[in-house]
């Protein structure tokens, strides 16, 4: 891991989560869901589609998290590394994402923050496609990148991603970078990576693989198949920016040569 966890999450030995912890987790979520409903009622009589869409997203994320909490309370053990798409359980990953967003506030003279959010230079600016089947992960990553000054589009599965990549290349405005989740249903990250690398018109598009699994074999396989880089979840904003910028510089350089 490239960073230390800043939160603690200790499931009890039985494999499930204690009922007191579950209660503490559910209560604020239920409040968020309840207030979302109130807000939606309120917004029904007003014409504010953007705000309504945000409320719906918050509610969907709340439902997702509640579902994860409910499933972790069952007696079934949490998925172990190797079985899941992450070395972290879904709840741990969500907590880590949330911690990253919360921690992602400017502190005075915080060099890492300044580096993470300095506007990209012209040779580092580019269009990025974020591909992840989990809307919460996609949201965290896209927000981070937009805040860093990149132009970001999102795809929720592998085949959508391939369509978007192909269409944008046909329009002469290809994506510079794809941030690609590995474990997705239907067309997974490996397949997307191989198809992009086999497509001559996408040769200047750099692929950065993202995954909660950061074992050596996975990283090596990504790079062997033609990925430009690998970024483990949860994301560290400054590292993410540095890697994306480096890939964009490389893509621009190779584009200039061709």
């Amino acid at each position: 891991m490239t960073q230390e966890s800043t939160y603690s999450f200790e499931p009890p030995s039985g494999g499930g989560v204690s009922s007191a912890l579950l209660h503490s987790l559910r209560t604020p979520l239920n409040q968020i869901l309840g207030y979302c409903e109130l807000l939606r009622d309120e917004l029904a009589s007003r014409n504010e589609p953007g705000l309504l869409a945000d409320v719906n997203r918050i509610e969907a994320a709340g439902q997702d998290l509640l579902g994860l909490i409910e499933s972790s309370s069952s007696t079934a053990p949490l998925p172990r590394p190797g079985e899941a798409d992450s070395t972290l359980s879904p709840i741990e990953l969500m907590v880590a994402n949330a911690a990253a967003v919360i921690a992602d506030q400017p502190a005075q003279d915080d060099l890492a923050y300044l580096q993470a959010y300095a506007p990209p230079s012209a040779r580092e600016s580019g269009r990025i496609l974020v591909v992840d089947d989990k809307s919460g992960n996609r949201d965290v990553l896209s927000r981070m990148l937009r805040k860093q000054g990149f132009e970001v589009a999102e795809a929720g599965d592998g085949s959508d991603a391939l369509t978007m990549l192909s269409e944008s290349a046909d329009k002469g405005k290809p994506f510079e970078v794809v941030l690609l989740d590995i474990v997705m249903p239907d067309v997974n990250g490996w397949e997307v990576l191989q198809k992009v690398k086999a497509d001559p018109k996408l040769q200047n598009t750099a692929i950065i693989m993202i995954s909660g699994v950061d074992d050596t074999d996975t990283i090596v396989r990504c790079l062997e198949l033609g990925a430009a880089d690998f970024v483990p979840k949860p994301f560290v904003p400054a590292i993410l920016k540095a890697r994306v910028s480096a890939s964009i510089r490389a893509a621009h350089a190779s584009g200039a040569m061709n």
Binding site: Q31, G34, Y35, L38
Partner: peptide
């Protein structure tokens, strides 16, 4: 006892 629950549910019932 939970203030936010109380506020939220009472407002929904009043509505």
């Amino acid at each position: 006892d939970n203030e936010a629950n109380r506020d939220m549910l009472s407002r929904r019932l009043v509505r």
